[in-house]
Simulated assay, not measured.
Amino acid sequence: MSEPIYVPALPARWSALTAYGLLTPDVRTRVAPLWTVPPRVGGERTPGRPPLHPLDPDPAALARHTYEAFGLIARVQRDHPAWVDTCHVEREPGFPGSGAAGPPLRPVTGVERDPRQQVACAEAARSGGTGLGVRLRPTGPPDERSAEALCRLLERIAFARCPVDLLVDLGEVDEEQDAHHTALHTLNLLGPLHPWRTVVLLAGAFPRTHPEAYGAPLAETYRTDRHLPDLLRHAGHGPRPAYGDYGAHDAASADRVSDTGDDPFRGALRYTTALTFLVGEVPAETDHHLTVRALAREIVAAPDFRGAEYSEGDRWLQVCADGTGPPGTGHPDSWILAGHVQHLTHVARELRRHS
């Protein structure tokens, strides 16, 4: 396939996997996800900080959980490559190893990972012929120590002689963060260290908590990530970076066991416009279907709604608003699915239009 123009970082769960499978062929060919296998049990994990001891009490269940995720990713990707990050399960007893994913999936490592994991990823990449990704999570502009750590990792995996991708993950960004400076400094410092096959810059995200801005029940919040694609044109070294975000969810979605856990905000309808995110929170009430249809009607009536023919997510919103579909309005996973489809479609087409 041609090099991707859009790399969404998505959790390997039903909502995101199904959403990717529903993308039209013209979108799928230019979208290469970075899938993360979510944890099976426990609370939210902190990216880049592996636990000091195993957290999953059932190695056999952990193995089934991981194999199932690998199988679902491979099925939805078909022959299209994608990256697979196992950061939340790879230190647990029962983890089947990075090679279990198999081609065309590309294993992911990072400078903070156990050296044995780094070597195992390189061996899997060499045997599968897929290459591998190095995921970095800078919390600020990197320095020489960051470059030295990356060089040590590259030396450790050099034996594989395989293509390597640089995945720079800024996490959630807001208007008060100097994300542009961090992004450019990271790319300019670390980009020249290796002849990367692909360079990706991930940033942005839907809000973690329900936004207060503009109105209710359908709130609106500014897309703080929208200027980053323009910034990527000015990166000084190596291949032009591809843009990435987290689909229709916050940056920590893949660090949790499920989309619909204890956080009530995850029961929401979401829509991506050119400048903003529209978000409608659905309270956990017996007549929540009335709220869902009311929110869908607001989204469909918004001037930025792109019409039912634009994507399966837009079509779902139109049918939900009209009441012409099934009697119910589904559950939070269904709402997230619709959000992912319309978001992925919109971002991919906008990037292609401006590329």
Rank of each mutant, 00 (worst) to 15 (best):
A248M: 08
A183L: 04
I336K: 11
T66Q: 12
S253V: 02
W14R: 13
H53C: 08
E312M: 07
A82I: 02
P207V: 07
D79V: 08
F277G: 03
R28Y: 04
L337G: 12
A160P: 03
R315C: 08
P239C: 10
G97F: 12
P115W: 08
L170K: 10
G71M: 08
G129C: 14
Y6G: 02
L189G: 14
P93M: 03
T209D: 14
P47E: 00
E92Q: 15
W335T: 10
P57T: 05
L52M: 12
S98P: 11
R223T: 04
L62Y: 00
R45T: 03
P115G: 05
W35F: 03
R353K: 05
T209Y: 12
P47Q: 01
D245S: 11
C151A: 15
R226L: 12
P163Y: 05
V200N: 07
L317R: 05
A122F: 10
L136D: 06
A61Q: 08
R197H: 05
L167W: 00
H65V: 14
V173G: 14
L201N: 06
H227R: 09
S355D: 10
A294P: 14
V76Y: 02
R49M: 09
A251H: 10
L344F: 05
G71N: 13
G247F: 00
L167M: 02
G236C: 15
R30M: 14
P142V: 14
L34P: 13
A294Y: 00
P51A: 13
A82V: 02
L136E: 11
A122I: 06
L10R: 04
Q117P: 05
Q342C: 09
L337K: 07
D58I: 07
E285D: 05
F159I: 10
G48M: 04
A9S: 11
I73D: 02
S258T: 14
A124D: 04
E285R: 15
V347E: 00
L232P: 04
E3I: 11
R297D: 03
V173M: 07
P303R: 10
G128C: 07
A158V: 06
R137I: 12
P327E: 05
R293F: 03
A251L: 00
Y222D: 13
A12L: 02
A254V: 03
